[in-house]
Each structure stands twice: as structure tokens, then as C-alpha cells.
Amino acid sequence: MTTSCEQIQQKLPEYWAGIISVNEHRAVDTHLAACQACRNESAELGRLWANLDRVPVEAPGPAVRTRFYDMLDAYRSGADEKAPAAAPSWWSRWFGQPLPVFAGALAMLAVGFFAARSFYSPPVVKPETSEIAQLRGEVNSIREMLQQQSASERLKGVTFASRADKSDRDVVFALLDTVKSDPNVNVRLAAVDAFKRFGTDHAARRQLLEAIKLQESPMVQIAIIELLVDLNDQSAVKALNAMTQDDKLQKAVQERARWAVTELH
């Protein structure tokens, strides 16, 4: 035996799949001819490998496509509303820019401070590059803050986001992301609250409704349901109705969905 069994074994999947070079194929054949143990194992596992093809898999349901295009519309609708015919909005200009690389937490804090100041005294938007740069800085800093390691910092990011430009899709989606996947319940709850500002946006509301499913905290689920009621979102009734029957949800959540349906009717 010139090659060890282990060396041959790791080539076997490619050998069975027929995606192996001629030389390697020959090496495997040579080894298998000489080594009974490997020959048996290759025969047995090779058959298994081939049979894996016969394990069926279902196709995705039509909802997958609907949901995707809903989301895409939600993202684009804001951009289209905002963009004037003559010149692209600061938003769409900002759009393609690579994210500035911040040199550590110090730079981050500086940007955060800058954002804080400009929020407390709302900037007068003039079509000047400096203003565009300023707004861009705010949005980037919010996104950065929402990805900080400290939950306190992320909660601060949510507070800033709740004061940001209403038509900013990246802020809306950053908040949605926080609602869906922030590890801290307090931060997620605050993000749901911050959404209130974006409530006039139908598409954004639909995304929020979507977020209920991926949520493991019943308290956050209830907060979303209540927000939809506060926003008087009639279009959510159907989905809320389905939630009253959804056994994956906790009882308290089902009950709140039931309450929401009657409130909205």
C-alpha cells in the first residue's frame, strides 16, 4: 500500500460523485483493489451516497415568493417616494457608498455624539454636500450603534433611530433587524416602540407583522400586536386572526391577537 487508508477515505465522496481527477481516480482504484476494508466501506457508503439522491424534498410554497416581493417593495417604496425627479435624494446617493470603516470605539463615540447633537437641534436640510454628509453620518452611526456589543449602546441606537428621518429605509430596516434578532428583550421592545414613527408606512407595517413569527419573546410579540392596534392597521386583521389559532404562540399572545382583532373591527 502506497497511500494510507485515511488519505483515500477523504477522496471517496468525490470518487462516488465522479468529480475526481483521472490521477486521483486511479490512486483510489489502486488502493481499493489492495485494501479489503476500504473496498467494503466504499461499496457500502457509496451506495448510501447514491441513494441520498432518492430522498425527496418538497418545493417551497407560494408564500415564499409573496413575502420576498413584499419585503422588496417595502424597501423600495420609501426610496421612490423620497426621490425627486431631477436629482437623486441624499438617500439614494448614500445608498451605494461603502460603509466608512470606524477606527475603533473612540471614533464610534465621536460619531454618536455628533449624531446626538444634530438630533437635538434638527438640521435644516439644504441641498449641499455638507448637509448630505451630515445626514449620511447620522444614518451610519445609527446602524453602527444598533450593532454594538453592549446592550446599553444598542438601546441608545434605538433611541436615536426613533428620532431619525421618517423616510429613511435603512433606519427602518435596521430597526426591523433589531426587532427580529437583537439578543436583548429590552432592546427589542424599544425597537418596536420606535417603529411608531414609521407607522404611516404600510409596507413597513407589513414587515413588522412578519417579524412576529421569528420572535421568541411573547412580550415582544404582544408589543408588536399592540402597536398594530395603535396604528389602526386594518390590513393586519387577517394575519392577527390566524394568530388566534396558532398553537405555536403562547396563550397570552393568542388572546392579545383576539383582542386586537376586535379592536380593529
Partner: peptide
């Protein structure tokens, strides 16, 4: 992508949710 999730999780509803989540993250 859906097949990947379905084969990994054997949970249809979860796999559909995850497909949506992946495209959401790609966008984000």
C-alpha cells in the same frame, strides 16, 4: 436555499421563514 434549510431542519414553516430572513439580511 429552501431545500438546504428543509434538509437541515426538516421543518417546512421554519425553512420558509429562514429563506425570507436570508434575503432580508442580504438586503440589510
Amino acid at each position: 436555499l429552501f431545500h438546504f434549510f428543509l434538509r437541515c431542519t426538516s421543518d417546512r414553516a421554519l425553512s420558509e421563514d429562514l429563506v425570507q430572513e436570508v434575503y432580508f439580511r442580504i438586503l440589510r
